Simulated assay, not measured.
Amino acid sequence: MSEYQYYEFLAIDRPLDDDEQAEVRSLSTRARISATSFVNEYHWGDFKGDPNRLMERYYDAHLYVANWGTHRVMFRLPCDLLDPEVVEDYCVDDQLSTWVTDEFIVLDFTSEDDAGEFDFDYDAEALLSAIVGVRAELAAGDLRPLYLAWLAAYGAWERDEDAFERDADDDLEPPVPPGLGTLTAAQRALADFLRLDDDLLAIAAQTSPPLEAIADDPGELAAWVTRLPIAEKDRLLASVIQGETARVRMELLRSFRGDTATVTPVPTRRTVAGLLDAAAQQRVRP
């Protein structure tokens, strides 16, 4: 097989109506399209649409793989659930980029490996379903997916010595979130998709404090809800009626966990060179 490209899009917060599906259908006559998904494979030719544009207008998640080594996954979230200024700390050139469109922030995670080819031993159609859970985790305030993407971007330097300029050695890591030593299944899938080296992850996790078990006690949650302003409750209820149940749940959990979270010490930030050197040393230890 000389060429293989796989495209998948998911609409999570709001399904596409008939007119929107027709607009997407005009971009591909062979794709499998529903109110919540778009899937197509290309063995020749190319997709006529612009994934960035589709994410801005219709979809909340996108995955792309090609047999020349490109791995790409994108997520769209409301800016009130993920602060663009927070995300900016984790951006790395084209490997993790972001932009704001209307009330949304779009995250673009990319991994390139020109020396390798797509592994046909796994099912491309299973990839996004394994990874997409990180979107809800980000919306709930879990920043581990952003750190994993940042780390994977600089980890590519070990495979490609021209990936960064030498002065990037002194770049400092972004804030280290808790729980890097105990990733969720979706975060583990994201790390694998972005080709994050296990030794590098283990080194990075050394300064990551343990993640406290999140136990949303129903009684505590109910008491917290009673303290919300009436106008806020009305706004949230109206959003549920308009079909934004998933978004409302993420917003409430994010606010609740933010109000009840335990403050943890901020780890000392390390340099890129320090992380890469420590990972290299760990690999050669007997």
Rank of each mutant, 00 (worst) to 15 (best):
S255R: 14
L236K: 04
G179P: 05
L146S: 00
V240Q: 09
D198S: 15
P177C: 03
E232D: 15
R195M: 07
W150L: 08
E137G: 10
L211F: 04
A140P: 00
R257G: 01
A246E: 11
F256C: 04
G219D: 11
D142V: 04
A189G: 05
G258A: 09
A246T: 11
L200N: 07
I214Y: 02
I214E: 14
V225H: 01
I241N: 07
A139L: 02
A213P: 01
T268F: 05
L146F: 02
A136E: 12
L180G: 06
F256Y: 15
T260I: 12
L183C: 07
D199H: 14
A204H: 03
T245D: 10
L237Y: 15
D162L: 02
A213T: 12
T226F: 05
L148P: 00
L211G: 11
D199W: 03
D142I: 01
L236C: 04
V248I: 11
W157K: 08
R269A: 15
L237W: 13
Q242C: 06
D170M: 09
F256Q: 02
G181K: 11
L146K: 00
R270D: 07
Q187H: 07
I203V: 15
V266M: 11
L190P: 00
A140V: 06
G141H: 09
T207N: 14
V176L: 10
R257K: 12
R159C: 05
E137P: 01
A139C: 14
A204C: 06
K233V: 07
L221I: 12
R257A: 01
T264E: 12
E220S: 12
V176E: 07
A191R: 00
T226E: 15
L138Q: 01
E173S: 13
I230V: 12
W224T: 02
A205H: 10
L180F: 10
E161M: 02
T271I: 06
A223L: 11
L200V: 08
D234E: 15
L138D: 00
F164W: 09
R166G: 03
